[in-house]
Every structure is written in C-alpha cells, then in structure tokens.
C-alpha cells in the first residue's frame, strides 16, 4: 500500500476549510500550519484571477527529511506515510532545512519538528484525513496509489497529462499530486512576494525558532 494525495486545483476555491480542519484535528499551535492554502494573484487589473494551492507534506518516496534525521524521528510507515515521532526528535531542524517544499516546521510548544502525517492516526482507524472530510468540493482525493481501483488511481488515469508534482527536479518522488496546476501555483520562483500585497500584513508569529 502506498497512500497518496491528489488535489484538483480546478475545484479548490480557497475556502481554507482543510486548513482549519487540520488545525483542529491535530491541535496545530498558533502561527504554525501542517496544511496551508497559498493564494497567488495573476494578471493585471481588470484581467486578474486568484489561484489557490493547498500545500502540505508531499510524503516523498525518497524523502530528504527522513534521510537527514539523525534519530529516525522521521520514518516511513508501511503504507508510505512519512510519519514523525515527536518524542524522539531532538530539534536539530535538519529536516526543515532539507525539505524542498517548506512543509516542516518547529512546533513552538514542543520545540520539535512537526508536519502533515496524512492524519496517520485517522488512517489507522480506517478514516479519511481531516482535510479530505472538510473539503466541500472534494478537491482533495486520498487513497492507495498501488490499488488501480482506488479513487486516486482512477483520477490519475483520467487526468494523465495534467498530473503534476512540485519540484520534480529534486528527485524526491512525491506522493502528492496536483491536477490543474501550473508554474504559478507550483513553482515558488514563478511569483513575486511584494510588501503590502499580502491579504494579511504584520502577521505575528510565535518564536518558531524556539531557543534561537
């Protein structure tokens, strides 16, 4: 079994329901996110549109975070999930530095690394991840990539040409796919970050750096 995620960006409307569901389910502290939806505005007024891209851990087959972790706090589960053992983590932040997707953060409360686990605890009880349940338009498709009859496998078959991953050049083989994505949504270098353009400015963050 190899569990994977697929997000159909044609369907996502940026409601952030998945973000909130994840926060509640996993008790993610203030100023940190296991899952977040990035907004990118494209075009010039009046020809503009807003794109929405949910970003979470890609549960890579060749995960740099798992490789760099000195104590195996980051480890693979048999179902392909890259899980984290917060009790073992020493907080070296090597995984944060290694992840090309910016999906790992230092939990300001526990001072350990944390990230999306595809709700491994729910999956173990045969439940869907919280974000999948919360999505009002079923933009999040979750399932077994090894099973050709699973929803995700069927979706990939139907949308073959349009299935993409983030940063394929990194060789991480992500188990997280996007349909309807493009350079602007998936490549951080394809958009600018200009002061004053953010919907929320002066965001207060807890000292995620912890002891620093």
């Amino acid at each position: 079994m190899q569990l994977g995620f697929l997000v159909d960006l044609h369907l996502c409307m940026g409601c952030k329901g998945c973000e909130i569901a994840c926060k509640v389910e996993n008790e993610v502290p203030l100023s940190t996110w296991r899952l977040r939806v990035k907004y990118v505005d494209v075009g010039t007024f009046p020809e503009t549109r807003r794109t929405f891209t949910p970003l979470r851990c890609n549960h890579c087959e060749n995960a740099p975070c798992e490789r760099i972790c000195p104590v195996s706090a980051l480890h693979y589960l048999e179902n392909g999930i890259v899980n984290i053992d917060k009790e073992r983590c020493i907080g070296c932040a090597g995984c944060v530095m290694a992840c090309p997707y910016g999906a790992i953060y230092i939990d300001p409360q526990t001072q350990t690394a944390d990230k999306c686990t595809y709700c491994a605890h729910r999956v173990a009880s045969s439940m869907m991840p919280a974000c999948v349940v919360a999505c009002p338009v079923q933009a999040n498709i979750f399932g077994d990539l090894d099973d050709p009859a699973s929803n995700i496998s069927k979706y990939i078959q139907v949308h073959q040409g349009g299935v993409q991953v983030r940063k394929p050049e990194k060789g991480t083989n992500p188990h997280h796919y996007y349909v309807g994505g493009g350079n602007v949504t998936l490549n951080p270098l394809a958009s600018e970050r200009i002061d004053g353009y953010s919907l929320f400015n002066n965001i207060t963050t807890l000292p995620a750096g912890g002891n620093h």
Binding site: R36, G102, I104, A190, R193, I194, S198, A208, H212
Partner: peptide, 16 residues
C-alpha cells in the same frame, strides 16, 4: 503573468 503571492504563511525566519 504578473503573479504576486497575496497569502502564504511560509515558515518564518532563519532556521539555522
């Protein structure tokens, strides 16, 4: 594209 990020809460600051 004139693409501008209008909302992202990326990991803050310097990690190392």
């Amino acid at each position: 594209t004139n693409a501008v990020v209008t909302l992202d809460v990326a990991i803050p600051g310097i990690v190392w």
